[in-house]
């Protein structure tokens, strides 16, 4: 493994997270509970697609085969996708979406704060732009967690269910494989194991304020670093890649 290859894979993982979350949030367009929320969620989706573009473009440069970020996004199969399982989970109801946003945005805030210190200048620059966006995503998720948790009996129930249902996908956020460890030693990657305690205490704090409880520990699902996903990803990609796959010679 060379540093360049490893960084390519690392950029792909981060890019995939942004791309697939952008896809999921885009699905909510015109489906928000109020117009303001429609705009807020589309806005987060837009940030995600922008981040995906930057990261996949960097991956394409590192790969050095003349591919573009679009080739990377639109021509890879499920097994070569490495987004977290949490990210590809369906939106569910609004509480479910917010639970996913809460888990992820708190994680991303901690993650990109560390990545900003990366020795890889491109990743550090992307991280520093991302933090500004993630702060807003996190505030949005926290505000809604408070409203839903401490709103009505129904919203409380739904929010707790969203948190519980997704809990089994949160363990994966903190996994470190050979690639991560290799890049960590070179001061390029983030030590995600080190983020876990802080993440959990932040989540707990928000949930306490929202009269909600941290879900009980359970078996944590895993697989995305090896390209093993839930059944959801295949459907996302068949939709997302449809035009590029159906008309391979076309330029858009």
């Amino acid at each position: 493994m060379t540093t360049k290859d490893a960084t390519y894979n690392y950029a792909i993982r981060l890019g995939d997270n942004a791309l697939i979350l952008g896809h999921r949030l885009s699905e909510l367009c015109s489906r928000g509970p109020i117009l303001e929320e429609d705009l807020a969620l589309t806005n987060v989706a837009l940030d995600m697609i922008g981040r995906a573009q930057a990261l996949l473009k960097y991956a394409a440069e590192l790969e050095g085969k003349g591919h573009t970020e679009d080739d990377i996004a639109y021509r890879r199969a499920e097994i070569n996708y490495h987004n977290h399982l949490l990210i590809e989970q369906p939106n569910g109801d609004f509480a479910h979406t917010i639970a996913r946003q809460l888990y992820l945005s708190v994680f991303e805030y901690l993650f990109f704060t560390e990545l900003e210190k990366s020795k890889d200048a491109t990743l550090a620059a992307i991280a520093s732009k991302t933090i500004k966006e993630v702060k807003y995503h996190m505030q949005h998720a926290i505000d809604w967690t408070l409203r839903l948790g401490d709103g009505t009996a129904e919203s409380h129930k739904r929010m707790q269910k969203g948190l519980n249902d997704l809990w089994m996908y949160t363990g994966e956020l903190f996994e470190m494989d050979v690639l991560d460890t290799y890049l960590l030693h070179q001061h390029i990657a983030v030590d995600t194991i080190a983020l876990k305690a802080k993440w959990q205490s932040e989540i707990e704090k928000v949930l306490r304020g929202a009269t909600l409880t941290l879900p009980e520990d359970t078996y944590m699902q895993t697989g995305s670093k090896k390209g093993i996903h839930t059944e959801n990803l295949g459907h996302i990609l068949s939709e997302m890649q449809y035009l590029q796959r159906a008309y391979p010679d076309a330029k858009w």
Partner: peptide, 23 residues
Amino acid sequence: WITRAPSLRSKQILLAKIQDEGG
């Protein structure tokens, strides 16, 4: 068409446009 937009750039432009409309 957002989820089927054929490039990342076109996806961003479309998302931003729809956001403008909502605004």
